[in-house]
Amino acid sequence: MSRDPKKKPLTVDQKRYSELVNELVPKPLYLRNAIMAFVFGGVVCIIGQFFTDLYKISFKLSSTEAGNPAVATMIFLGALLTGLGLFDKIARYGGAGLSVPVTGFANSVVASALEFKREGLVFGVGSKMFMLAGSVITFGVVTAFVIGLIYAIFIL
């Protein structure tokens, strides 16, 4: 992504070329990708709902309580598919349908851990595990901290 500190304006040549590129380079298949993301994402959530209901009935949990083991199960499935080398192949079709649900979170953790296995357990698996997922946790925690603080100070 472009976050140029000193934004240099494009020269005339560069501008003309980028217009040519935009004209020639194909756009992604928006509709197909959107439909695939919808179907895959929906199916992943149905599977999640199935596990939520399963834990609700078999362990007599409330809907909220049953959500936690269901999330863990989906993370397990995402991790397993990544380990078997299938996740990236399915995600080629499913796109965001697989990366937005927690399965995608699991995939980003496992893919990084797996990829850096050969750098050893400490420098590889241990420290590289959150290479991609780290930003999700960071921004989630920062958001939650700010909102929690506002809530604790101004609303309570």
Binding site: A72, L80, A113, L114, M129, A133, I137
Partner: peptide, 14 residues
């Protein structure tokens, strides 16, 4: 749950 599961399964898978 989510974070622990991700770490544990990530580690084991690796």
């Amino acid at each position: 749950t989510g974070i622990t599961a991700a770490i544990i399964f990530g580690f084991l898978t690796a």
